[in-house]
Write a protein that binds this DNA or RNA. Structure first.
Length: 502
DNA sequence: TGTTGCTTAAC
DNA sequence: TTAAGCAAC
């Protein structure tokens, strides 16, 4: 028997809206929501809103969407079995539907408190401000969680967000020593009974859709080949992410500085899909390394501090996004670099996308991306440099292509990385960022192990020939170089000199 | 988280 | 002829 004929329930609830935080451990807003629910003797309910149009708008890749949805289903089970927290799944057909959905949810569940972790991108921020404005009967709690140090905490003496990495890093380290980083405990097991109507509502909104050719997620279907790779390479769930972290810290981090640049060695952590999509928290990742280094940031093991530096780069670019939002509005950080006459040649761009530039190291990187949804960090620098400097193609095209194909695509890091390569970003002169793609492969893939893994037609080519661009490579069916590096280099330097009147 | 070109030294 | 060191871009 229902308690009442009205839709409204007598018992109020706390809702945690999951977004880019698909985990139960070290989740700031979820933890606080759980405390609130306990104190107020209310049930805690989880919510996730699927918005395919938002994914499209932000160029989310098939890999990323599948990764999110699979992790969502593991999260749902974890929440229910370990913490007695139900998870409601809603689908927003249009971007604006999110407001109606939230109104509906808070009404059906008689929600008193709505918690979520803050997102720093411009659209997401606007949405969240709107949510706070329209849900006037609800206490909306927007919590900082996404990075270790809240954007705006690290400032120059003049009160600005530092524009250069090294001073930022120094201040960041000082801040972390002064305010030690702590993880947030997992939520309490919910003891409060749900009202029958709420239970009905939850039960009828609990299906997670997966991409298939006949549903609204058909744009995100992975080919059979990719789906197979996905299963072995991206294990699902926060336990898998945490296990990957533990293994890295135990076995690899103390060699990180010496191995990370050689893609054939797989010396990197491969944690970015988990951190970017919120499957594990950056705090937890940082603390594991920090403890391994006996809580030191500037001394101890250089391999560990180098890895921690990479986490600080992530923090840096989040700060830049918040402090200088133009970078997410199609504008370069250095505005004057918009005077560069970028090339928009479609054939050249397509050759780059397809990994058919005729430069084996570049092509290996692009083919790794196209077949696996990831790319080794060294190659990200090499291919982005090749597109923006050798081809002089607009960095925004490359940035977009990366987002559309990476499993770990993150607006701030991706944008920061691309602008770093294109010399339109936060620091340094163009000539500091001009790579020689042949020299890079000689240095970092001497025996061609990485190249041969992805550029299959060159698998019988001798190691040293891979680093020359002789006609021999074409005899294997490999494309001719689409550009001459030293000519391209001169053209690029000339163009940068032109805009700086030098 | 770079490259080139020049100088000098050592075969 | 090659390697190492260093300034300049």
């Amino acid at each position: 028997m229902p308690l009442s004929k009205k839709n409204k329930l007598s018992s109020q609830t706390v809702v945690h809206w999951f977004r880019v935080d698909l985990r139960t451990s070290d989740n700031a807003a979820l933890h606080l929501a759980s405390l609130k629910a306990k104190r107020e003797r209310m049930p805690l309910i989880g919510l996730y809103i699927i918005s395919a149009k938002d994914w499209k708008r932000h160029d989310a890749s098939n890999w990323k969407v599948n990764f999110i949805l699979k992790n969502l289903s593991t999260l749902k089970v974890d929440l229910e079995t370990k913490f007695s927290i139900p998870l409601i799944i809603k689908v927003a057909e249009n971007i604006k539907d999110v407001y109606e959905i939230l109104k509906n949810v808070v009404e059906k569940l008689d929600t008193k408190y709505l918690y979520f972790n803050q997102e720093y991108e411009v659209h997401e921020n606007q949405r969240d401000e709107m949510v706070q404005a329209i849900l006037d009967s609800v206490e909306v709690k927007r919590i900082h969680d996404q990075c270790i140090v809240m954007p705006g905490s690290v400032l120059t003496q003049e009160g600005n967000i530092p524009k250069v990495f090294t001073p930022f890093k120094r201040s960041w380290i000082k801040f972390v020593y002064q305010s030690p980083v702590k993880t947030f405990p997992s939520p309490e097991k919910s003891e409060v009974e749900l009202q029958p109507l709420a239970e009905d509502y939850i039960r009828s909104n609990s299906t997670i859709p997966f991409p298939n050719h006949d549903n609204f997620l058909n744009d995100f279907v992975l080919s059979t080949e990719k789906a197979d790779f996905f299963k072995t390479y991206y294990p699902i769930g926060e336990d898998s992410g945490l296990a990957r972290l533990t293994e890295f810290v135990e076995k690899k981090i103390e060699k990180y500085k010496v191995t990370r640049d050689y893609p054939a060695l797989e010396g990197t952590s491969n944690l970015s899909p988990y951190i970017t999509n919120g499957i594990i928290s950056s705090r937890t990742a940082f603390l594991a390394a920090f403890k391994k280094n006996n809580e030191r940031l500037e001394s101890g093991n250089e391999n560990i501090t180098t890895w921690i530096s990479e986490i600080i780069w992530r923090e840096f670019y989040k700060h830049i996004l918040v402090g200088y939002p133009r970078v997410s509005k199609n504008k370069p950080f250095k505005l004057e670099t918009d005077n560069i006459q970028w090339n928009y040649d479609e054939k050249l761009f397509k050759a780059w996308c397809d990994g058919k530039t005729g430069y084996p190291f570049v092509d290996a990187g692009m083919r790794e991306l196209n077949t696996t949804g990831r790319m080794h960090n060294r190659l990200r620098m090499v291919v982005s440099n090749f597109l923006t400097k050798d081809l002089l193609i607009d960095w925004r095209l490359g940035e977009r292509y990366f987002m559309q194909n990476l499993i770990d695509g993150d607006l701030s890091s991706n944008n920061g990385g691309w602008q770093w390569s294109a010399s339109t970003g936060t620091d340094s002169q163009p000539y500091f960022r001009l790579f020689n793609p042949i020299l890079q492969s000689k240095k970092f893939d001497k025996d061609g192990v990485y190249i041969k893994k992805y550029v299959k037609e060159l698998r019988n080519c001798s190691g040293s020939s891979l680093h020359t661009l002789t006609a021999q490579l074409q005899s294997f069916g490999y494309p001719k170089p689409i550009v001459d590096h030293s000519t391209a280099r001169e053209l690029c330097l000339t163009e940068f000199k032109r805009i700086y009147n030098k």
